[in-house]
Simulated assay, not measured.
Amino acid sequence: MKKLKISYRHRLKFSTVISISSESLVKIGNGLHTQRNVTIQNDGGSLIIGKNVFFNENCNIVAHKKIEIGDNSTFGPNVCIYDHDHDFRKEGFISEDVVIGKNVWIGANVVILRGTVIGDNCVVGAGCIVKGKYPNNMIIIQKREEELKLISK
């Protein structure tokens, strides 16, 4: 049985897709705002999006178990959120809840993986791949070293 609880006063671009399979629950608070090509997909789990959440272009959210996003959170372009991984040893998925707190800012090109908990008032820097538990009021960045090598002739 599909369940969709969606409040009013949303600004969804025409290319936003919300896909719900059977036995899914999707709850969206007031003020969801999306840019182009946002996909919100629930494949049998629970997806809860708080009030005044913004998804920039090309964001992709896929829930198999549970994804919860707190009020007033902002997502840069190309953010992907998955509460599951493919189980390559057998058919199916391995799933763990993803919880994103209130007032969280997620930079461009961030990937949020299964089992991640991001506390309230956090900032996740562009290009991060996050998995784990992050307490409230943290800035999460992943530094990368650049290495240059001369091409030998």
Rank of each mutant, 00 (worst) to 15 (best):
K2G: 02
K5L: 05
I6Y: 00
R9K: 14
R9H: 14
R9E: 14
K13C: 12
T16P: 13
V17R: 11
V17W: 05
S19E: 08
S22F: 04
L25T: 11
L25Q: 03
V26K: 00
V26Y: 05
I28K: 04
I28P: 02
L32G: 04
L32R: 01
L32W: 11
H33Y: 14
H33K: 15
T34P: 09
Q35Y: 13
R36Y: 14
N37I: 03
V38Q: 10
T39L: 06
T39N: 11
N42S: 04
D43F: 03
D43S: 07
D43H: 06
G45Q: 10
I49P: 05
I49H: 10
G50N: 05
K51L: 06
K51N: 14
V53E: 04
V53C: 02
F54P: 00
F54L: 12
N56E: 04
C59A: 03
A63N: 04
K65C: 03
K66V: 02
E68C: 09
E68T: 12
I69S: 00
G70V: 06
S73T: 15
S73M: 03
S73A: 12
G76H: 05
P77W: 11
V79C: 08
I81G: 06
D83Q: 09
H84E: 02
H84D: 02
H84Q: 00
F88C: 05
F88M: 03
G92M: 04
F93D: 00
E96T: 07
V98C: 08
V98P: 07
G101E: 09
G101L: 13
N103I: 03
N103S: 10
W105P: 01
W105K: 12
G107P: 09
V110M: 08
V110I: 13
V111D: 00
V111R: 01
I112D: 15
I112Q: 10
I112W: 15
L113Q: 14
L113V: 02
G115Y: 00
T116D: 04
V123F: 11
V124H: 04
G125M: 05
C128F: 09
I129V: 15
I129M: 15
V130C: 07
V130K: 07
G132Q: 13
K133C: 09
Y134W: 04
N137K: 06
I139V: 15
I140Y: 02
I141M: 14
Q142H: 11
E145M: 08
E146V: 13
E147W: 08
K149E: 07
S152H: 13
K153W: 08
